[in-house]
Simulated scan of single mutants.
Amino acid sequence: MPEHSDLLEIVRRPLSPDVRLEVPASRAEYERVQDILENEESRYPQLWFDGTRNIAIVVGPPSALHAAMAGALMGAIIHEVKVNLGLSSEISRGFTLSTETGNSRGLTVRGWDGALVFADGNRETLMIAVEVGVSQAYESLRAAISWSVCALRCRLGIAMCIRERSRRLTPVPDYSSIQEENAAVAVAEEDFRRQLIERPYGPLVRDGITWFGRINQVIIETYRVPDEDYPPETILSPSRSFTIVDDGNFVGGDVPPDLQEVMLGDCIPDYVLSGEAMVATPVNFFRRDWFDSRFQSGMVKTAVNRMRSRRK
């Protein structure tokens, strides 16, 4: 390594959950720092590279809310396909998840929150990519899901954009022991769950401190290429966009459960299915019950994680 590397210095800093930092870097510098991270066998931070802009992307760990909603989206689609659409067991076995952290096309390396993959023998086909952004710049979220669709050729991209209202940053309480911390966090967790009865999308407040801000907005969008000639670096516009939560209130009652376009043919390759009618079968995966339960659980876990000390 050179005597001074901005990129190495940044990956050595403590990173808050859901943080993404863009650092100008050459491909060679990215590879050197990536080798260091791999040798240390540390899962986070992750390091990606945008070869079209010569930018390294430093990615912090996902918050509990981020992880919960990425898993919930993929789980809901798989459940609908495997349980409610009457597929044979042979076809159902081919439907799997991928959580690879680094995917390459040309000079660009990116991760994703998850993808649905269909495996047929030794042939794997990327079908649906999922991205969740928690207070992430919208342009960054669009770039991430567009790359999966345009560069990796996923048939469909689904992105969820979550906006938490800004809150004052406060120091973590100074606990005298891990036992005191665990006891305080357990009491706070029950308190936060009670607060959700009146304020299902926050804020979560304890002793005058806001540990999770009110949810300003949750939007779910779908992305797909209109034709096969799109270059890998294209930034797509959403084909469908639905607001689920607005200013702390659920407003997604009229959102169609298939988001007006998610079909069985987006989950399983056409050649496996039995005709156009089967390919066009709606996948009615979006429902308020799982959305609320997973979202609120993620809010509470994120809030209590913010209360914990930052022990190494």
Rank of each mutant, 00 (worst) to 15 (best):
H4A: 08
L7G: 01
L7Y: 03
V11C: 02
R13A: 02
L15F: 11
P17E: 06
P17I: 04
D18E: 06
V19R: 03
R20W: 00
L21K: 01
E22W: 01
A28C: 03
E31F: 00
I36D: 01
I36R: 04
L37E: 00
N39K: 07
E40R: 13
R43K: 12
L47Y: 00
W48L: 00
T52W: 07
R53N: 09
I55A: 02
A56I: 04
I57E: 00
V59D: 00
L65V: 06
A70D: 03
G71A: 08
A72P: 03
A72R: 13
A72S: 14
I78K: 12
V81F: 11
G86N: 02
G86R: 01
E90A: 12
E90R: 15
S98L: 13
T99V: 07
E100G: 12
L107P: 07
D113K: 08
G114L: 03
L116I: 12
V117L: 13
A119T: 15
V130I: 14
Y138N: 06
E139P: 01
I145T: 08
I145P: 13
W147M: 05
S148T: 10
C150Y: 13
A151Y: 04
G157Y: 11
M160S: 08
M160Y: 05
M160Q: 09
I162Q: 11
R163I: 01
E164W: 07
S166M: 10
T170D: 10
D174H: 10
E180Q: 14
N182I: 07
A186S: 12
A186F: 04
E189I: 06
E190I: 10
D191A: 15
D191W: 12
D191L: 14
F192T: 03
R193A: 12
Q195N: 03
D207W: 06
G213V: 12
G213T: 11
R214P: 02
Q217P: 02
E221Q: 13
R224N: 07
V225E: 14
P231A: 06
P232K: 07
E233P: 02
T234G: 05
T234A: 14
I235S: 09
P238W: 10
D246M: 03
G252Q: 07
Q260R: 15
L264T: 10
D266N: 15
C267A: 14
I268P: 04
P269V: 09
D270Y: 11
D270S: 13
D270F: 10
V272L: 03
V272I: 15
L273R: 14
A277Y: 02
A277V: 04
P282T: 06
F285A: 12
F286D: 03
R288V: 05
D289A: 08
F291M: 08
F291G: 05
D292F: 14
F295C: 04
S297F: 01
M299K: 15
K301Y: 06
A303S: 08
N305E: 12
S309W: 03
R310N: 08
K312A: 08
